[in-house]
C-alpha cells in the first residue's frame, strides 16, 4: 500500500456500499409504508409534549418498541403488541430507545390513562412507587398558595406536598408532556406485520 488515492477510493467505495445496504435500502422499504389505520397524527399540544420528551431525554431510559411474545414477555407486562414501522410514521425524531431503565412506553397512554397519575408521577415518582429511580421533575411545576381557577392542581400525597399547605400546579410544559404520554396508544391492530424483526418467531422468518 504505497498510494494514497487508491486506498481512499476503495475505503470510500466500501462505505458507499454499506450506505446502500443499511441506509438506502431500509429507507426505501420503510418510508413507503402508510400509517396504520387507527394511528392519528399528533395534535399541536401532543407534539409540544413530544418535544419535551425528547429534550429532557426520556428516551434514554424508556424504550418504545415492545418485543414479540416469542422473544420476551412484553405483551404480558401490558406494554402492548409488537410494533411495525406503520406505528411510527408521525415520529420525528424517532424515540425507539435502547434502554429499559424504566418500562416501555409505547402504550403508556392506554395503560395509564389518568392525567392526574402522570402529573403526580412527573412531580415525584416516589410518591407513586417508592423504589422508583426515575428523576423528579419539579421544574415542570410551580407551587402556588392560591391556584387560579383554570390551574391544574396536582394531587400530591401529603408526604411529598409543600409543607405550608400550598398547592402544586402544573406548568404548561407538564401538561404538554402528559398530553403526549396519554396519546401513546397503539392498541389498534398491527399493519404490515411482516415488516419487523421476525428473527425470534421461528419457522418462516424472513
Amino acid at each position: 500500500m504505497n498510494k494514497v488515492f487508491p486506498l481512499a477510493v476503495l475505503a470510500f467505495a466500501i462505505l458507499a456500499f454499506a450506505t446502500l445496504m443499511l441506509v438506502i435500502f431500509p429507507a426505501a422499504q420503510i418510508r413507503t409504508v402508510e400509517p396504520a389505520e387507527g394511528l392519528e397524527p399528533y395534535t399541536a399540544v401532543e407534539e409540544r409534549g413530544r418535544q419535551q420528551y425528547v429534550d429532557l431525554g426520556c428516551y434514554y431510559c424508556h424504550s418504545q418498541q415492545p418485543r414479540s411474545p416469542e422473544q420476551a414477555p412484553d405483551l404480558q407486562r401490558g406494554w402492548g403488541r409488537p410494533t411495525t414501522p406503520a406505528d411510527y410514521v408521525y415520529d420525528d425524531p424517532h424515540v425507539l430507545g435502547t434502554m429499559r431503565t424504566g418500562p416501555d412506553l409505547m402504550n403508556v397512554g392506554a395503560r395509564m390513562p389518568s392525567q392526574g397519575w402522570h402529573l403526580t408521577h412527573l412531580y415525584q415518582p416516589r410518591a407513586i412507587e417508592e423504589s422508583s429511580i426515575m428523576p423528579a421533575y419539579p421544574f415542570l411545576f410551580e407551587v402556588k398558595q392560591n391556584p387560579d381557577e383554570d390551574d391544574v392542581v396536582v394531587p400530591v400525597p401529603a408526604e411529598y406536598a409543600p409543607a405550608d399547605g400550598a398547592k402544586v400546579v402544573a406548568r404548561q410544559s407538564a401538561l404538554d408532556l402528559t398530553a403526549y404520554l396519554l396519546s401513546l396508544d397503539r392498541t389498534y391492530p398491527a399493519k404490515d406485520k411482516e415488516l419487523r424483526d421476525l428473527g425470534f418467531d421461528g419457522g418462516d422468518a424472513r
Binding site: 445496504m21 443499511l22 435500502f25 431500509p26 422499504q29 420503510i30 418498541q65 418485543r67 414479540s68 422473544q71 420476551a72 409488537p82 410494533t83 411495525t84 414501522p85 406505528d87 411510527y88 425507539l96 415488516l195 419487523r196 424483526d197 421476525l198 428473527g199 425470534f200 422468518a205 424472513r206
Partner: peptide, 13 residues
Amino acid sequence: LIGGPVPTWVVTL
C-alpha cells in the same frame, strides 16, 4: 434494533 420494528434482513445482515 434486534426484535424491533425493522425488516428482518437488515438486522440479520
